[in-house]
């Protein structure tokens, strides 16, 4: 079997499937089946970093839950509720992570073919790139504060408002700069031009493998909801 990324519609369909399954099920614990399938789905695209990092985190979550349920483990910071929350949302996290890793050009080309308004496309691309960008920016601000000796616990506790200001102001100024750079880049690439946007990313038609994965995700979701019991929304 070829190990290569699936087309954007498959990724969006997978996201819709896990979202519906997680929102509708009564049995949060059973979402492990969806998480394992989502990890296998990312492995099929050679996203080894997602499989390894999220797989390890998920294994740790499982061990902690087991220890809480069967060995009365008490944790200082997180309760069983938080662990189950992460556990239940894991399939969404894995599939979203895969979606976030999709090249922005591929996503925007697909959304443009679907006649999505340009502001919506731009908004979605900013959301998808938000976490990697912010991670780097927050790290840079903290490094800068550390260089000036502003991260000492005593200082943070003695002057919390000043510390907040030292973090918030450079971070916000950087956010505004990023927004300006992205806007210039979008305009330079023809975002204001009417019509459908193309893409450098090869063939845009769905292959047999893509159709097969769409069918498998649909089947997995239906089976999961039958086995996992659908939640009632009435009061």
């Amino acid at each position: 079997m070829r190990l290569e990324p699936f087309a954007v519609p498959v990724k969006l369909w997978a996201f819709c499937c896990v979202l519906i399954a997680v929102l509708l099920t009564r049995n949060g614990i059973l979402t492990w089946t969806l998480t394992l399938f989502a990890l296998a789905y990312t492995a099929m695209q050679r996203r080894w970093s997602i499989v390894l990092s999220y797989g390890s985190f998920y294994a740790l979550l499982g061990c902690l839950l087991y220890a809480i349920r069967f060995h009365q483990l008490k944790m200082a910071l997180f309760s069983e509720f938080h662990l189950i929350l992460f556990w239940t949302l894991s399939p969404i996290a894995v599939v979203s992570w895969d979606l976030i890793k999709t090249p922005p050009g591929e996503l925007s080309a697909f959304l443009s073919r679907m006649k999505t308004p340009t502001p919506v496309i731009l908004g979605l691309l900013v959301i998808f790139r938000f976490f990697p960008t912010m991670k780097a920016e927050v790290a840079a601000v903290i490094q800068s504060m550390r260089n000036r000796g502003l991260t000492a616990p005593a200082f943070l506790l003695r002057r919390p408002l000043e510390s907040l200001e030292f973090i918030l102001v450079p971070l916000l100024l950087r956010c505004l700069q990023i927004a300006d750079q992205l806007s210039v880049s979008a305009v330079a690439r023809g975002a204001e031009r009417p019509g459908t946007r193309g893409s450098y990313f090869g063939n845009t038609r769905l292959s047999g493998r893509d159709w097969a994965m769409i069918s498998i995700w649909s089947a997995v979701t239906v089976i999961f909801l039958i086995v996992g019991d659908v939640r009632s929304w009435s009061n």
Partner: peptide, 15 residues
Amino acid sequence: WTIRDVITTVLLSML
């Protein structure tokens, strides 16, 4: 609304 407005709104809303 301009493209810059859209990007700034979404970026700061996400923050």
